[in-house]
Design a protein around this nucleic acid. Structure first.
Length: 260
DNA sequence: AGTACCACCTGACGGC
DNA sequence: TGCCGTCAGGTGGTAC
């Protein structure tokens, strides 16, 4: 689930609920998610300190812990952050729980356990070491055009390549392509400058709208593809049948007649 | 460089 | 009801 809009919403949750309170305890519930750090290291880095700010890059969320460093969260295919006050309300599948003085709690969950928890002293260096491309939102048209012009493969495959452009996953790359009326398997080199411009605008619009609507699939506009990713569904534009095929190893949904 | 396939892990859903 | 196969919005390794 968590692509750029979802992670942006998680960032807002942390910002609204969990900053500037002293950390009483950090509980690592699932050690297997720790990457390059340990239970002891995390506890030492975090206890008594405060969460000061957050940053998002693509699908990664960074939470700054005083001057000491950054807690880095990646959500995999299932995962979320949740804030709550009643200790009995700890969510199922929590992998990391932070207790604050004053009674609030923040949980990072990972149902399928594809999530990742890391620690770094330098956020930008971490992003670089993960070989992530620029954040999809930070790419202006010139950057975006240069990226596509430098690529050979299919456009959807490129949009999902986190090392080239970070943040889009299967669903929102399908959505941007649907909006721009471009077929997912179109080779990058075939796209006209106009199409690249249209796709850039479509991508930004899709991400903005999804964030505004709290990344909740139920709340996406009727004109979108997202509510119709199912066999037998019809295109909201032309009424044609929405099709599914395997593109870049994932299930892609698209309209054969609108998208070229 | 780009892609295809498998693996990781757990749960939901449809078919029988 | 219950079992089984299939699929799920991410990523990493490997092989071509």
């Amino acid at each position: 689930m968590p692509e750029l809009p979802d992670v942006e919403v998680f960032k807002e949750v942390v910002d609204a609920t969990s900053l500037h309170q002293a950390i009483a305890h950090t509980h690592v519930r699932d050690e297997s998610l720790l990457s390059g750090t340990s239970r002891q290291k995390l506890a030492r880095a975090m206890s008594g300190r405060r969460l000061e700010s957050t940053r998002r890059h693509g699908k990664h969320l960074g939470v700054q812990v005083d001057e000491s460093g950054w807690l880095l969260l990646h959500f995999g295919m299932t995962g979320a952050v949740e804030s709550y006050r009643d200790p009995g309300a700890e969510p199922e599948y929590s992998a990391l729980v932070i207790d604050f003085e004053g009674g609030a709690h923040l949980a990072f969950t990972s149902r399928r356990r594809f999530g990742k928890i890391a620690w770094t002293e330098d956020f930008d260096a971490f992003i670089e070491s993960e070989q992530l491309g620029p954040d999809a939102f930070g790419m202006d048209l010139a950057d975006f055009r240069a990226l596509i012009r430098a690529s050979r493969g299919g456009i959807k495959s490129l949009l999902m390549s986190q090392d080239r452009i970070a943040g889009l996953g299967n669903v929102y790359s399908d959505e941007a392509l649907f909006r721009a009326r471009i077929a997912p398997e179109r080779p990058c080199e075939d796209l006209s400058d106009d199409e690249i411009g249209t796709l850039h605008r479509a991508m930004r619009r899709v991400l903005e709208t999804a964030i505004e609507r709290r990344a909740d699939p139920e709340k996406m506009p009727d004109s979108w593809l997202l509510p119709r990713r199912e066999k037998g569904e019809r295109c909201p534009r032309c009424g044609g049948e929405i099709e599914k095929s395997s593109v870049a190893g994932r299930s892609s949904w698209f309209c054969q007649s609108c998208q070229r």
